[in-house]
Simulated scan of single mutants.
Amino acid sequence: MKNLIIIIFLIYTFSIMNCDGRYRSQKSHQQVLVDNKLFDSFSKQVQYIPEGYSEIVTDTILNNGYQIKMNYHSIETDYVLEENQTLNQIETAHHYKDFEAHLMVLKDDHLLINTLIDKSDFNKFENPSFWKKAIMQFLWVDYARSENNTLYLNTSFCTPDNQVCKDFVIKINEIGNLEIDAINLDEHIL
């Protein structure tokens, strides 16, 4: 019994002494990661912009009788992907989340519009390749321009790769008709 314990102890000791990593001492860190199939997980950085759920809620009443309830928020399942590669062979993937806005407009306590505003509403103004990369940047009430019979909202769509932006005005009249116009048809760079 005593000999069995000594034999087990010797086998354990020799096995520990042989696990000192000498076989990796001449390899680079990158080669060790490749050998252990871990290189891909360390060579790609993924970033979500914004990192978490983002939301802006607007609930306002104008002196011309319009009441605007707007919930502008990020879409967690819809994003534009932009990938780059650095000098160290590290690949970065930026996932820019798209946005949409739930809009409810009332005039003198009468519901005019209850709709969702997203980039699909603006398809006729630009080619499909722009909309594939575009993200809704903002949706806001144009308080100064709004009149007694018309409410004005502004929105902007930009591409994250080259910051080409398209601006639009959304007009809602007192009977609930919604009209979208492009503010500028030329590209401008921020």
Rank of each mutant, 00 (worst) to 15 (best):
S25C: 06
F130K: 02
W131Q: 05
T92L: 03
T155Y: 02
L33H: 04
I113K: 09
D109Y: 06
Q85T: 15
N149H: 11
I90E: 07
Y72L: 12
L103N: 01
H110D: 03
E76S: 12
N3A: 15
C19F: 09
F157R: 03
F168E: 05
H94D: 10
S146A: 05
D186W: 06
Y53N: 13
K27A: 03
K132D: 15
N71S: 08
E179C: 07
V80E: 04
H188Q: 12
K124A: 14
K97R: 12
D142N: 14
F125E: 09
I117W: 03
S25H: 04
T13K: 09
A182N: 09
D59G: 02
I68D: 02
N123T: 12
R145D: 06
L87M: 10
V141S: 06
K37E: 09
I5R: 08
Y96T: 00
I75N: 07
Y48N: 03
Q85G: 06
L87E: 10
L33A: 08
F39H: 07
K166W: 07
L38M: 13
S41R: 11
H29M: 10
V57K: 14
I75H: 00
D20M: 13
Q30K: 03
K133R: 14
I135S: 00
I6L: 14
G176T: 04
D20E: 07
Q163K: 14
Y53Q: 10
D35K: 05
N36Q: 13
S156Q: 12
I183L: 15
E82I: 08
L106G: 01
C19G: 00
Y72C: 02
I7L: 13
D40I: 09
K37L: 11
S74D: 05
G21T: 05
P50D: 06
D59R: 13
Q67C: 05
I135D: 00
D121A: 14
E51V: 04
T86C: 03
I90L: 04
H95G: 00
I56G: 05
L153C: 08
D59E: 14
V105L: 02
P160K: 01
N162P: 01
E82Q: 09
F39G: 00
Y12A: 14
Y152I: 10
Q137C: 04
L4I: 08
E179I: 14
C158V: 03
Y72K: 06
Y12T: 14
L153M: 13
I49L: 10
I61W: 03
S28E: 05
Q26D: 11
L112K: 00
V57I: 15
D142V: 12
I117H: 01
F9N: 12
I49N: 01
Q89S: 07
H95Q: 12
M17R: 08
Q67M: 06
N88S: 12
F157D: 00
T60G: 04
K69R: 13
Q85A: 08
E51K: 05
S74N: 05
T77N: 15
I170A: 00
Y66M: 01
L151A: 06
K97Q: 03
N177K: 15
G65C: 06
E100I: 03
E187D: 15
P128Y: 09
T115N: 08
M136V: 12
N64Q: 11
V169D: 01
D109I: 04
Y12R: 06
D142A: 08
F168Q: 05
T92D: 10
T155V: 06
N148H: 15
I180E: 07
Y53D: 13
K2A: 13
N177H: 13
K107F: 08
D40R: 08
K37S: 11
N18T: 06
R145L: 15
S15M: 09
Q137R: 08
I68F: 00
